[in-house]
Amino acid sequence: MLSYVARRLLFVLLTLLLSSLVIFGVTQLLPGDVATMILGRFATPEALARLRGELGLDRPLYVQYWDWLWRFVKGDWGTSLATGTAIQPWVMERLRNSAMLAGVGLVMSVPLAVVLGVVAAMKRDSWLDHVISVFSLALVGLPEFVTGLVFIGVLALGLKWLPASSAIEPDAGFFDALPKLILPGLTITLVMLAYVARMTRSGTIEVLKTDYIRTAYLKGLPAHEVILNHVLRNALLPTVTIIAISIGWLIGGLIVTESVFGYPGLGRLLLYSIQHRDLPLLQAVSMLVVAIYSLANLLADVVYAYLNPRIRLS
């Protein structure tokens, strides 16, 4: 088990290193010169050269890369080109907001999705299964901005139950923000619900086909006992992985959803940094998102291995 975790960790670190190269490389290729951006178009060549020296932009690229990566690891993420403020506390605040939103979405979606998936699998090929399957297929396809805008139109503009904008104070507490979290949370829920339900269904179907389930039924165990002790235990195993895999899906969903509702999260900040060509900010947000994504995948693998004795004991 330990060697498995160590191997996975090493792999994740390697991937992170490579993706940091991609992120650094991509942001280096961004059109526009940083020194010109700071000093304006009418700066003298001497002033530009001096600033480049101060910022270390005249060093070879690989030196700049190592310096940037080391600073990122240490938590020194520099200052924003657009606002001149320190990036790290800003990004952390937005990360907290995105985590709140993702949390609301996960809490609303995962239990429901697992139940729907298991029910659909148990009643395979019944009308209930078809309804669940078609609805989840349809929901998977709906872009977040469509569902989000429908929620705004019906629940906020039409029925006036909830606020249309989710522009909370960036440092608002969870319960202050909660009313404004519900609509974007619902949007995230739909994204996750359909995906996790579909995957849980196919995982459960796989389990139902196995010999040990047939044995359990044949030895006369009551159905609810078979389901609880044998089916669910094994079916939830792949579901753990699925939830982690869908973190990538969730991140994409957050970027769009935050933009729909004007919610001050990491996704909005990412879009802001691209629109304002704020290089250090873009680099920091991208690295953070990739790191979270990789760690979620690592966590999924480790939990999966822990729950699955065939890997744990090998």
């Binding site: 991937t15 990538g248 991140i251 060509r277 994504y293």
Partner: peptide, 24 residues
């Protein structure tokens, strides 16, 4: 395959946004 892993290590929408930020 390692190259492909790197592309997959970055969430799809983020990668798309990064690339489009560069090429316009």
């Amino acid at each position: 395959m390692r190259l492909m892993d790197v592309l997959l290590a970055i969430p799809a929408l983020l990668l798309a946004m990064l690339l489009l930020a560069v090429v316009g």
